[in-house]
């Protein structure tokens, strides 16, 4: 269970560029929740994910995940609880390393890294199986450098890496935004399969309202660093894009365009 309580975050405090990105955010995710997050540019979606991941600490407030207090834990220490996929396909993988090496890095997320061999032959078998599930033919290219893969393949691989070791929370930061629509749908399909298979608690930021409605059991909308809309259950199931547009009088260009 994720509990964000009364969190504030201001960037460039005391300068002309001062920006209060998160303004008293409260958010609770139950285990197994698949929450989609929408909101305009600057609403605080990515900042929220970065606060959870520990890219920077909050100015005020607390963040708990299950029994752990994440609030002031450094990024690399809380990584053991979190699976992350970034918007930029380049960010989630090490381009100069092989596919299997990347998976081996992810397989040891949050564990002590000593002088044992970086990858074992047993692991290779596991990786081959998991890669085969992606249905992208990557299982036959295990030693290829990740830099040779397309954006969609890299996002699928990052997703696999993020979930190889079951995370307490999966953070998806617009992970299909840089992909073409067809590839985006494929990556989302894989996302759904993995989340359902492992019953992962997931927070997925998206700019695409159709995706926000189609996926997950709960939808939240952020505005000015707060949650302004929170829909779940039956209401979420019956939600239409038109409802969202009318109900909440959305006037953000980009959100309309991506519909």
């Amino acid at each position: 269970m994720l509990e964000i309580k009364n969190v504030y975050k201001t960037f460039n405090a005391g300068t002309v560029n001062e920006k209060r990105a998160i303004n008293g955010l409260n958010l609770t995710l139950n285990n197994g929740d698949f929450v989609t997050v929408i909101g305009g540019n600057g609403a605080g979606k990515s900042t929220t994910l970065n606060l959870i991941a520990g890219v920077f600490p909050p100015d005020e407030g607390t963040i708990h995940l299950d029994a752990y207090n994440l609030t002031n834990l450094p990024e690399h220490k809380r990584a053991r609880f979190l699976g992350r996929v970034f918007q930029d396909p380049m960010r989630g993988t090490a381009a100069n390393m092989g596919i299997e090496e990347n998976l081996a890095l992810a397989y040891r997320r949050g564990e002590h890294r000593g002088l044992k061999s970086g990858i074992s032959s047993e692991e290779r078998k596991l990786y081959r199986e998991r890669l085969a599930m992606l249905d992208l033919g990557l299982e036959d290219r295990m030693t290829s450098k990740v830099g040779l893969l397309s954006g969609g393949q890299r996002q699928a691989l990052t997703l696999l890496m993020a979930t190889l070791k079951k995370p307490n929370l999966l953070l998806l930061d617009e992970h299909t935004a840089a992909l073409d629509p067809k590839t985006a749908d494929k990556v989302l399909k894989i996302t759904k399969e993995i989340v359902e298979r492992d019953n992962l608690t997931t927070l997925m930021v998206t700019h695409n309202m159709r995706h926000a409605i189609e996926y997950g059991n709960r939808l939240i909308m952020m505005h000015n660093g707060q949650v302004v809309v929170d829909i779940s259950g039956e209401e979420k199931k019956n939600l239409q894009v038109q409802d969202l547009l009318e109900k909440f009088n959305i006037d953000n260009d980009r959100m309309l365009l991506s519909e």
């Binding site: 991941a53 450094p74 990024e75 690399h76 220490k77 990584a79 053991r80 979190l82 992350r84 970034f86 380049m90 960010r91 989630g92 993988t93 090490a94 381009a95 100069n96 390393m97 090496e101 081996a104 890095l105 992810a106 040891r108 997320r109 949050g110 564990e111 890294r113 000593g114 002088l115 044992k116 061999s117 970086g118 990858i119 890496m161």
Partner: peptide, 28 residues
Amino acid sequence: WFFGTELGCSLRATGCNADMARAQGINT
């Protein structure tokens, strides 16, 4: 040998992509 170990791999990952390394729990 060293750059093939877990520790050595984390060094290579950090040089290649520090964001990714931290996301995998490596103290960069």
